[in-house]
Computed example of a mutant assay.
Amino acid sequence: MTTSSVRWLSRNDVAKMSLPLTSALDIIEGTFRDHGSGAFENPPKIGIHPGNDSFIHAMAGWLPRQRRAGLKWVAGYSSNHKVSLPNITGLLVLNDPDTGLPICVMDAAYLTAVRTAAASAITSKYLSPPNVGRIAIIGAGLQGLYHVKMLSLIYPEAEFQVVDINENAVGRVAEQTYSKATVVRVKEAEVAIRTANVIVTATSQLEDVAFQFGWVKEGGLVLPVNPRGWSQDITTETDVLLADDVEQFKTYITATGSPYRDISRIRGSIGDVIVGRVAGRVSNADRIAVFNLGLAMHDVAIGSAILDIAEQHGLGTILSY
């Protein structure tokens, strides 16, 4: 039997790759375009739910144009902070599309944060109102931090109103955001949402309604990182309702008992908007909501870019199997 090898990239290894955030934006925009043109395979994620605040999902993606294939096995445990562990953990496995053999296994925490925030930033690029001056970020954890970093590349002079019960967490976001963007702490989500042009709710999973769609002003763009937590009318009163993948979103709604009873008005995907198949913002006054649940093809694309850097510089550990 022939011995094969796989490159292992730990969390520290992945951090050393230093994938430029601008490159991540370009990758995600291109992958959204692939989605809109149908050049992808991205079945709805499947998973198990060991607790009310937890999930473990399998996410497979195939990008034929780039010939990249892989699977992310990702867990989200909202209570992990109580035992000093990250809320999101996981591994990405990349496979050789010609043989099916695994060629790389890497920690997926960093790439999940990067691709999620990049997806929001590209969504905002195509759907935000003109002259974005104020952005609300609800939650100052890892996702909140990377959303500020990514969105500040699109809106370098915007004011980011960050809401978190932990004042120190907001301070860390401000310290780690290297741009002209201003980061200020706002105590109440309602105050930040009412004045923002773009709203990102980057909290852990919420079982109860914490945000009212009625707080969103004319022209506002709402980007929930976790789909729960908004009032029912986010799906009925929006002028435009979209998702990163419609089939996956509908599957999620059915499988998890989502609080949103009516999703019949969902118009299409971000990829559809980018390639011109579906109209996005028609009026500056349109209130738009986009549910980006996370695409495996984004994980595969970002992970492949990280692997390319590792191979160029001989990083990681080569294991035989």
Rank of each mutant, 00 (worst) to 15 (best):
T3R: 12
S4T: 15
S5V: 07
N12S: 13
E29K: 14
E29I: 05
S37M: 13
I48G: 13
I48K: 10
P50R: 11
N52K: 14
F55H: 13
A69Q: 09
A69H: 06
G70P: 11
G70C: 11
K72Y: 08
A75D: 05
G76D: 04
T89M: 15
L94C: 07
N95C: 11
D98E: 15
L101E: 14
P102C: 02
I103F: 07
A109G: 06
L111P: 04
L111H: 07
T116D: 05
T123I: 13
L127Q: 01
S128P: 10
I135P: 04
A136W: 06
I137L: 14
I138C: 11
G139I: 08
E159A: 04
V163N: 06
V163G: 06
I165V: 11
N166I: 08
E167G: 01
N168I: 12
V173K: 09
T177C: 15
S179H: 02
T182P: 00
V186W: 02
V191G: 01
A192I: 03
R194P: 05
K217T: 05
L221S: 05
L223C: 09
N226V: 07
N226L: 11
N226K: 14
P227R: 02
Q232C: 03
I234M: 10
T235L: 10
E237W: 10
T238Q: 12
D239V: 04
Q248L: 04
F249W: 12
Y252H: 13
D262G: 08
D262V: 06
I266H: 04
V275A: 03
V278R: 12
G280K: 02
A289V: 12
F291Y: 07
N292Y: 01
A296K: 13
D299F: 08
V300Y: 04
A301R: 10
S304V: 04
A305V: 00
I306F: 03
I306A: 01
L307H: 11
D308P: 00
